[in-house]
């Protein structure tokens, strides 16, 4: 059975708006930036500005899984978003064990425990916490997710800037076309920590570091009940500096259709002075509607790119738009885009 098309069968999201896609959608479509919390920065009187994922009102049952007892927040977000996207298919144990692929994309990744373990090491390596160190590896969230689902198949963690998420979508599509998997979860996940908010502030003074996860559940055409198709993922146009970023954004845009009034463009812009010139210039000619979730939710790197895809597909599921382009212009690696219809 030759697979040639890839469809979206499920969506999930954890964000500063809450622990579900409906919460993300309501916030994004309200267009009002969510409230900002302050995060203490050691050695500073003035706190850093972040948008935290709220403590869940009714704690998702999966968070009681033994594998998540010692994990940092990023794994909780990734697992909750993935389960929301997987939906009823989670019950098909044998299929999940053999035929479900997992791709987790991160930029900062397990930054909280990494900073915390290194601080303990600086104080005294002999008493640095053995319980914390294993959770610092980039693939801890993907490993915990596989254990929670009993998924023993292909499982990659990709690292890169925001655009790494769309490389993850393309990787999952490849696996489906090659028959390596019959379904694939693609998750973007990040967590907050003062060290990351501190770093982000150095580059964009008014940027707000944010956290959470977004999940797409992709399948080959033979498992129906899908509501959107992955039409395209552009090339990943790498860039090394500001000038190349403008050119990369332009070339990415050129690989996606011109667009029409009944279509949506979901951008990675943040409405910060000077931050989004490359992306705004690239899409100056877009005739349809626009949505920029990071203006509302903040800078959550790969999780934000996942929210863009999840919101685009969710609007197709509701029939609000016929097609949606997703544009991700990262800060430090690549411009890459996708189209769903």
């Amino acid at each position: 059975m030759v697979v040639s098309r890839v469809f979206v069968r499920g969506l999930g999201a954890v964000s500063p708006a809450g622990w579900s896609l409906p919460a993300l959608r309501a916030a994004a479509e309200h267009h009002e930036p969510l409230p900002v919390q302050s995060l203490a920065r050691p050695g500073w009187a003035e706190p850093l500005r972040v948008r935290q994922v709220p403590t869940p009102v009714d704690r998702p049952r999966i968070l009681a899984h033994p594998r998540l007892r010692r994990s940092s927040a990023i794994s909780h977000y990734a697992v909750a978003a993935a389960l929301e996207a997987l939906g009823p298919d989670v019950a098909d144990g044998a299929w999940v064990a053999e035929r479900l692929g997992i791709v987790v994309c991160v930029m900062a990744g397990s930054v909280c425990y990494s900073r915390r373990f290194f601080e303990e090491t600086l104080r005294d390596p002999a008493t640095a916490s053995p319980l914390v160190f294993p959770e610092t590896v980039f693939n801890a969230p993907a490993s915990h997710l596989a254990a929670c689902l009993g998924a023993g198949g292909s499982n990659y963690t990709l690292v890169g800037d925001n655009g790494a998420y769309l490389q993850g979508v393309a990787l999952a599509a490849d696996w489906l076309l090659n028959g390596r998997v019959a379904g694939c979860l693609v998750i973007g996940a990040e967590e907050t920590d003062w060290i990351m908010a501190d770093a982000l502030r150095l580059f964009r003074r008014r940027a707000v570091h944010s956290a959470g996860a977004g999940a797409l559940y992709l399948v080959a055409e033979d498992r129906a009940q899908t509501f959107a198709e992955l039409v395209a993922v552009t090339d990943a146009f790498s860039f090394a500096d500001r000038r190349e970023q403008v050119e990369a954004a332009r070339r990415m845009r050129a690989q996606l259709p011109a667009g029409a009034p009944g279509e949506l463009l979901c951008l990675s812009t943040r409405n910060l002075p000077g931050a989004d010139l490359a992306e705004e210039n690239a899409w100056g000619d877009w005739p349809g509607a626009r949505l920029a979730p990071k203006v509302v939710l903040g800078e959550a790197f790969t999780a934000a790119a996942a929210w863009q895809c999840v919101l685009a597909c969710e609007s197709l599921r509701r029939g609000k738009f016929k097609a949606a382009n997703v544009s991700v212009v990262g800060a430090s690696q690549q411009a890459i885009g996708a189209r769903f219809a």
Binding site: V137, N139, V159, Q167, L171, A236, S238, A240
Partner: peptide, 20 residues
């Protein structure tokens, strides 16, 4: 990854896999 492309004179997608 970008340093490799710059040093050797090629461009293309950079994919980093962090599977321990």
């Amino acid at each position: 990854g970008l340093e490799v492309g710059a040093a050797l004179g090629f461009r293309g997608p950079i994919t980093i896999i962090a599977n321990a």
